[in-house]
Each structure stands twice: as C-alpha cells, then as structure tokens.
Amino acid sequence: MSPTAPLGVFDSGVGGLSVLAELRRALPGQDLLYLADTAHVPYGARSDEDIRTLTDRAVTALHGLGAGAVVVACNTASAFSLAHLRARFDMPIIGLVPAVKPAVQATRSGVVGVLATPGTLRGTLLADVVREWAGPAGVRVLNAVSTELVPLVEAGKADHDQTRAVLREVLTPLVQAGADQLVLGCTHYPFLAPSIRAEFGTTFALLDSGAAVARHTRRVLDGAGLRAPDTASGRVRYFVTGDPARSAPVFAALLAANMHNGAELHRAPAPRIERLHP
C-alpha cells in the first residue's frame, strides 16, 4: 500500500462523523472513505456474532474501495470485532477505546460516569480499561445505558426535547452519585454535548476518544508508510448502506456541527452520499 491509499472509516451510522472530524484535523492530506451502515443501525442491541459479521462486511467493502487502513469508529463494533478483523486483513485496523483513562486522571470526586450502548457494556473492552485504570486509582465507575440515544441522533434529533428527556433519565443517577467526569462511550454521543450541557450545565466534564484515536491513527500510518503529506488536501467520500437521500440532511447537520466544534447544529449543503451494498 502507498500513502495515496485512502483511509477507511466505519461506523454503524452517523456517529463516526465525530471521529472523522478529528481525523481530518490530524491528517489533512489523507483521502478518507466514510461508510455508515445505516441499513442496520443501531448495533448496540445486536448479538455479538451479528456485530462481527456486519463489521466484517463493512471493512471488506472499504478494502475493496482501496482503503489501506481502516478506523473502526464505533465503540460497539470495536468491542467485538477488532481481534477478528486484525486476523483477517493484512492492513492496519484501528479501533476505539473508551476515554476512561483521562477521566480517571481528571476526576476530583472519585466518581466517573460512562454513557454507552448495551453492546459496548456487554463487551470486554470497557471492562478491561476500567480494571486497568480505575481500579488501581480507587475511582468508582458508574455506567449509564440507553437504547434510544443512537436512533435519536440518527434521526437528526441530537439537540431535541425528546433527547433531553432521555438524558435526564439516564444521567441523573450519575449526578446524584457525584460523578464529575462523563465518558461518551459511543461515537454518536459527542453530538449530544449541547443537550447534556443544557440539562446539566458544567456538572460533568465530557470526554470522548476521537482526538486520541486520530493521533494514534497518524502514528500508525506513519509507521506503515501510509500517511499522505500534510501539504496535500485530502478528500472525503461518503457511503451508506441504506437510503442516501434519507441520510443526507443528518450528515449535513452533523458535519456542520463538527465545523463549529459541536456548539450547535447548523444547516449546511448536503454532501454527496453514495450507496454501497457490502
């Protein structure tokens, strides 16, 4: 593979656009292929084997499009699929690790919350990182889970009364327990930051792994000789497995939110989105 090979980025839906924004900042010269499996989102409540199968299909499709490396920009897919993918593909496969370490290092109350999907909580990846970092530090980690938040973000309702009601329900117990750090354990959840702040103010510091995975990806591509020079201007192609017309308005809103650091969801021209059948 050469530095001209694009970098594939995969998520079950639109949440990985939060990681894509960080990758574009860290790798300005890299061509990117973003694939959202909108035909099968959300992954959180799916079986372990179903998650692995769908992730394998998506990475195979990105490899077929010429990707020289792939970022699995989905916490649930990372929790169940990384070992399988790395055994199957002769290219770098980069996954997500929930940002528990920086949360543990930053907490003053000794209580950290993790907002995640059922699939991420069911996998071993989160449990392993909690055991490694929170246990030795004597930090209490509390999980909050919802099956509703990912579909709400997918529907373009990241900053909506319905979403805020769900957040109040699932996060209030963390407030009552004294959590001062909130790990956003799903790539969809950075888009909920305005709603979380509207409901809870500065109660939580919000942490996600997007910037860290982008820095790690840059190092991996450097080591593999796959990083395009920063003097170039990288392009992005967008793919979905569902209906592109249905996805376009949400893509436009979330891409605009990324451009404005997630402060608010602005309207923007819809990007060109291609349909892919893995």
Rank of each mutant, 00 (worst) to 15 (best):
H216T: 10
V240M: 05
T203Y: 01
L226D: 13
V236R: 09
L226N: 09
G223Y: 08
S195R: 06
A205F: 02
Y189F: 15
E199Q: 12
A214V: 08
P229H: 08
D222L: 14
R218C: 04
G223F: 07
Y189D: 03
S209F: 09
S209T: 11
R227F: 05
A214F: 06
Y189K: 13
L221F: 11
T231F: 00
G242D: 05
T231M: 00
Y238M: 07
G242I: 12
V220L: 14
T203R: 15
P190V: 15
G225C: 10
P229V: 08
A224Q: 05
F191T: 06
Y238T: 09
G234D: 01
A214Q: 05
H216I: 02
A211W: 04
V213A: 02
T217C: 08
G225R: 08
T241Y: 08
F200G: 14
S209C: 09
S195P: 08
F191K: 04
D222F: 14
S233R: 12
L221Q: 02
L192A: 15
A214H: 06
A193W: 10
R227L: 13
L207I: 11
H216F: 14
F191Q: 02
L221Y: 06
A212M: 00
H188V: 14
A214L: 04
S233T: 13
V240F: 07
D230C: 01
S233A: 09
A205K: 11
F204C: 11
T217L: 06
V213Y: 03
A224L: 03
A228D: 02
A193M: 14
G201P: 13
A228K: 02
T241E: 09
P190M: 10
A193V: 14
G201R: 12
R197I: 07
S195N: 11
A198G: 15
G201L: 10
R219W: 13
A232R: 10
R218M: 00
L207A: 13
R227C: 13
L192S: 15
S209W: 12
F200N: 13
A205I: 03
F204W: 06
V220N: 06
R219N: 05
